[in-house]
Design a protein around this nucleic acid. Sequence first.
DNA 1: TTAGCCAGTCACCAAAAGGTAAGTAGTATC
DNA 2: GATACTACTTACCTTTTGGTGACTGGCTAA
Lengths: 110, 110
Amino acid sequence: MLTKEELPPCPVATCFQLFGNKWKIYIIQQLIDHPMGFNALHRSIPGISQKVLSSNLKEMDAAGLITRTVIPETPIRTEYALSELGHSLMPIIDSLVEWGTDYQQLVRNS
Amino acid sequence: MLTKEELPPCPVATCFQLFGNKWKIYIIQQLIDHPMGFNALHRSIPGISQKVLSSNLKEMDAAGLITRTVIPETPIRTEYALSELGHSLMPIIDSLVEWGTDYQQLVRNS
DNA sequence: TTAGCCAGTCACCAAAAGGTAAGTAGTATC
DNA sequence: GATACTACTTACCTTTTGGTGACTGGCTAA
């Protein structure tokens, strides 16, 4: 979770701060179905660098959108999963996908 | 409208390209209730520079989200208004405002 | 004729975001 | 002992985005 000091006054700005960059929505989409490890996430999101994936995961963990669990199997693994808060973004993602798909149709038919 | 070449394959990336920056959602929110001129918009969005407002308006016009009408009154004015496509973003904006407000409550009560 | 409002543009700079490639460290397998 | 897989970090660089302040140019009103 952000602290009270980091919280922007505008609700929309709050959203943008939490998941309004190039990659975070993609990370969330990957984690919807099942938790994933770092390398699996890295492979499943074409174009993202390890550095940016790492920093985005940290921010999303700090914001409470995902959870990070170290699993002491052999080999030791780290599992990233959507938190309840992360899952509550589903309606927004669905509406973005819907609107974006409609717009793509509009462009392709023009 | 974007051209077919500029269109990203992913619907969510399409959304981000069209209104996923710091200011465009604010511009849309200002134009929901009534059309506005350039200076009125500039005054109503604290912190935005004329340069960035100008370039954002151009991009949103090109994308079909807003319309730009020059009104030959005296003094001559320019009116920016939401297009039908722009209005179709309302459900997304509403869900962003709702989620952001909930998150703010969560932070403030923690 | 000076001032002010409208709607911007331009040149320059700063900050944020992202990309690249290499390195670290632990464990396990060949 | 070499290789590979886990999960990252670090230094450096480029690109993108945004901000500043001055300036243009048409029009109007005192």
